[in-house]
Simulated assay, not measured.
Amino acid sequence: MFTGIVEELGEVTAVENLGDASRFRLRGPVVTDGARHGDSIAVNGVCLTVVDHEGDEFTADVMAETLKRSSLGALTTGSRVNLERPTAVGARLGGHIVQGHVDGTGEILERTPSEHWEIVKISLPAGLARYVVEKGSITVDGISLTVVDAGSDHFTVSLIPTTLALTTLGVKQPGDPVNLEVDVIAKYVERLLTAGPADGSGQEAGR
């Protein structure tokens, strides 16, 4: 589990095409400190498994399904990426519960700068709109953010200088894709409200 608090802005140092998958080599001195084979690291909000680790770089294999359903397929050598290690049990939950399972991709539509922050408008796939609410949480490229405005096909977020300086959202421009993960609690609530009784008897299980 992650919290959406990006630990560092890393860099893709190599991309190898494996046919039905790709192997990425990424640089990130912070997240590679103590990293081992099999560990998880979120890359732009996608939970990936460390295949190899040497110095301040690690490699991760990304299957075709992940490349298709996320923006990772658009990464090339030199691309900057948001990196985060899983949260430790008992640690502070600085953002919100993030699984690292991308629900879909959006696109940067507009950037409106202000004196001390910037409003970013992002497109929202129709199937995800019902999970996004004003002042709710959403993960954009692995960043835990608060929704300012929620529409039927878009939402906006307000970015403080720290977020602009230390994450990919500081450099992404209109037309660039971003990974989206909605609040998992909203999905579970919807499932519970639409599902029938657990035992099929019309009564709650265990009663």
Rank of each mutant, 00 (worst) to 15 (best):
T76Q: 15
L109F: 07
V182Q: 05
E8R: 02
P197G: 06
T76C: 11
G100I: 01
V140T: 11
R27P: 07
V43N: 15
G19M: 07
G45E: 00
A91E: 15
D52A: 15
G104N: 10
G28Q: 09
G28E: 06
V81E: 00
I143N: 11
F2P: 00
V30H: 12
D149E: 14
L124H: 04
T3K: 02
A129K: 10
A205W: 13
A150V: 04
I185V: 15
S201Q: 11
R80P: 01
G127Y: 07
H116Y: 11
L159M: 09
M63F: 12
R25H: 12
S144F: 04
D149T: 13
R80C: 03
E110K: 13
V50K: 08
P29G: 07
T146R: 13
I138K: 04
T76L: 12
G175R: 08
G104Y: 10
T32P: 06
P161V: 06
L72R: 07
S40L: 06
T168V: 12
G170D: 03
S79P: 08
V30L: 14
I122P: 01
P174T: 03
R27I: 05
V62T: 12
R25A: 14
A195G: 10
D56S: 15
V30I: 15
L48A: 07
I97T: 14
A14M: 02
T194H: 11
G45M: 01
D20L: 11
T156A: 00
K187E: 04
A126I: 10
E84R: 04
G78F: 01
V6K: 02
H154T: 07
R111W: 05
A91G: 12
G45D: 05
V140C: 11
P197L: 10
E190G: 09
M1A: 10
G175N: 10
R85L: 12
L164D: 08
Y131L: 04
T156E: 07
T49R: 02
L124A: 04
L26C: 11
D39W: 10
E65I: 02
K68H: 14
V12H: 00
V132P: 03
H96R: 08
G45I: 00
E84F: 01
L9K: 12
E118G: 03
V157E: 00
V51W: 13
E107K: 12
S144N: 09
G28P: 08
R85T: 12
L145M: 09
Y131Q: 06
S158A: 13
I97R: 10
T163V: 07
Y188A: 02
G78E: 04
I119C: 11
G94A: 01
A205H: 11
Y188H: 13
T162A: 14
V50D: 07
V120K: 07
R191H: 14
R92I: 14
I143Y: 02
H96K: 09
G142P: 06
I108K: 03
T32D: 06
L109K: 13
I185E: 05
G136I: 07
L169Y: 10
I185T: 13
